[in-house]
Amino acid sequence: MSFDWVLLIQLTIIVVCLFFLIDYALRFPFPSRAVAPFLPPMKRWPVEQLWKWVEDGSPDPGFLRFFMRDPERRIPPGDDWIAAVDGTVLAKLTRDRRNFLVISLNVWDVHVGRIPFPGIITGYIEHGDIIDSDRSDPLRDEPYYFLRGKRSPKQRYMEVQTDYGLARIRFITSYLSRRIEFFHPVGSHLEKGQRIGRMLFGSTCVIEVDEDYAFEAKEGQRVVAGETIILKNPKKKL
């Protein structure tokens, strides 16, 4: 009896269709594996699905590879300051003779930070889980304070001595993802655009400088770490 190739092909098609149908049913309402590769990141990994993975401790390996990406950037020459992270400018604040630029990241942004200006790391400070109780924080009473609404927020920031005075770069995360990693020890000299650290699912970065330096980035503006200029031709203090 001759082998029926037509029947085999038809059975194969049926099995493949059943596989994708079952996969679709199991992953509903999230994209099936047949569709996901053709979708942009925000559609491929919906935020509801991402938080479920984080809470369960079982993130998708494909998303983890995407999240941990660390692309090269074209650092602008000269003294212009650059954005520390990818994201959207949430606010520009002035408190206690200091200027603050608040950048909000979404979960699909690159989470590796870069230093906006050259300088020497002079220290690291960690506030712990409940920052709102820390009365030394100059932004504690801000009406749209970027930590409000976060459950058990945590932040670490690096202090950097620069030609423009003392600067601080804060990384902030929430209760679901409290891992903050800085790459360099105290005393390290960093060049503008050099990588400084990573937030694991972190959501906010704050650049803090002397009040003499007014950030030119606009609220609502999308910025790219290492490339977007946030202040042009700042005058050095030293």
Rank of each mutant, 00 (worst) to 15 (best):
Y157I: 00
W108E: 02
T173K: 02
P118W: 03
D129W: 06
N106V: 11
V160C: 13
F171G: 05
P143F: 09
P153C: 12
Y157Q: 00
L105S: 15
R151Q: 09
V110F: 08
Y145W: 15
R135L: 12
S152V: 04
L147S: 14
E126F: 04
V160E: 01
R135A: 13
L139N: 11
E142Y: 11
Y157D: 01
Y145G: 13
G123P: 09
G165C: 07
E126W: 05
E126Y: 09
G113D: 11
G149S: 09
P138C: 09
Q161D: 15
Y164K: 03
P118G: 08
R135K: 14
D109W: 07
Y124D: 01
V112T: 10
P153S: 11
M158K: 08
S133V: 05
F146H: 08
E159N: 05
W108P: 00
H127A: 14
G128C: 00
H127P: 01
M158Y: 05
G165K: 13
Y157F: 15
I121E: 11
I131Y: 00
R156V: 09
S177Y: 08
E142A: 14
D109N: 15
F171W: 04
A167N: 06
V110R: 01
L166P: 10
V112E: 04
D129Q: 12
L166T: 13
R178L: 03
R114H: 10
P153N: 06
M158E: 07
Y175M: 06
P143N: 07
R156C: 08
I131L: 15
S104Q: 15
I121S: 10
D132R: 10
S133M: 07
R156H: 06
E142N: 09
K150Y: 12
G123K: 03
P153M: 08
S174E: 15
T162C: 11
Y164C: 05
R168T: 02
S152H: 14
D132T: 09
R148E: 10
E159F: 00
R151V: 14
I121F: 12
R170V: 11
T173H: 06
G149I: 06
I115A: 07
M158C: 14
G123A: 02
F117G: 04
A167F: 01
P116F: 12
T173R: 03
Y164W: 06
F117V: 15
V160D: 01
T122D: 04
R178F: 06
S174T: 12
R168L: 02
I120S: 11
T122R: 12
I115Y: 12
S104N: 12
S104V: 12
R178G: 15
I121Y: 09
I125F: 04
G119V: 02
T122H: 03
H111V: 00
L105I: 10
N106H: 13
K154R: 14
G128Q: 00
T122M: 05
D134C: 00
I115K: 07
S152T: 12
L166C: 06
S136A: 11
R135M: 14
L139Y: 10
L166M: 13
F117P: 03
I172S: 10
F171R: 01
